[in-house]
Design a protein around this nucleic acid. Sequence first.
DNA 1: ATTATCTATAGATCTATAGATAATGC
DNA 2: ATTATCTATAGATCTATAGATAATGC
Lengths: 210, 210
Amino acid sequence: MKEKEKNNNKDGMEISILNVAEKLFLEKGFNGVSTTQIAKIVGCNQALIHYYYRTKANLFQKVFENKLKYIISLFETIDDKNLSFQERLVIKIKSHFDALSQNPLLPMFILNEIRSNSSTISIIRETFKREAPILINRFEEELKIEINAKRIRNISALDLLMNIISLNIFVFLTRPIMEYVFVIDETKKNEMLENRKQEIVNTILNSLRP
Amino acid sequence: MKEKEKNNNKDGMEISILNVAEKLFLEKGFNGVSTTQIAKIVGCNQALIHYYYRTKANLFQKVFENKLKYIISLFETIDDKNLSFQERLVIKIKSHFDALSQNPLLPMFILNEIRSNSSTISIIRETFKREAPILINRFEEELKIEINAKRIRNISALDLLMNIISLNIFVFLTRPIMEYVFVIDETKKNEMLENRKQEIVNTILNSLRP
DNA sequence: ATTATCTATAGATCTATAGATAATGC
DNA sequence: ATTATCTATAGATCTATAGATAATGC
């Protein structure tokens, strides 16, 4: 059993390369991966990567943009207007946490690149500068109603958003340690994640009481 | 004005190399820095780095261990037994946040290495496996007293610790974006950090109410 | 004499390109 | 014909070492 995957040759090498690149970049970041490594796992030669994507930075960009789109989509969930603010908030927190559970490497991947990669940083910055205010303003409106009705304490939308994201990403950022120090098997791990998710919901809801 | 620093030649090249290495590794991680770059900034030639530290990994290890020691020291603050649990908790949260303010690159540095560097990961794991239970158990004792006295709600020491660390590290992890999207100048930035610190204290204290 | 620093270089990558060959679509 | 894939290689790193020279401590 070689490392090669001959990744569904059906969809062609172009896609296979992108898939393998995504997997490796998520694990090790831009600097941690070489086009030679990607080629080896894809099962082609290294030149082919440049035939399709010209440069390594270009290929990385493609992967990164896909991930950024995915993250933004996470925050564009449609609200059920029949539910209370609190019920909707719980759904948002849990679905954000669940999305991370299915993409556990994502938070580190994004954070790592906003630190080091000066070519992607401007993309992210612009994306955020464009998207964040819309998201925050919409959330702020909702919050104000609750605050004015004295159903929750006074807090800014940005602070609340940061609280939720902070709490949700943490276990995934520290996974390599957490698993070693606290986790024994897969069942225990899932149990621990469920508990943590519930604890985050409790923390946020309690922290909002007037 | 060259990039060279001729870093206090008094304390000798050995220390200068360590200092420059620390700075660069903190900014860009192990893979993002070459011994050639370090040498250029130190103002010596690249061979000297290997004369003192033999390998790049070795040099990195030295930097990393220092930082890990520093972080552990953050959690070994002496408590003033005249203060209430809540007062002591606030001091802990704030001093942890302040320590990060003075070492803003530290959280990302640590998280990045526990992801990628398989030689350091075992050091960290062992350190945590050794240190974490002591810290957590001590904290758990304190917590139980408060919980039994109904002064705070039921929560595990691990969850509370994770909450605090999560909330505190976030602004530093996302600094490159935050500064661009929300911050105009240095004064505004410090103001924002102060506000965030206070908001974290509020969040934690409120979340603990019975 | 010993320790610190330098020059030079081997050997291992790695990215990107040029040019050859194989596969495919009309 | 056009597109996909390969081989070969240039040129740029980068790490680590060997061996020469300079500085220092007795």
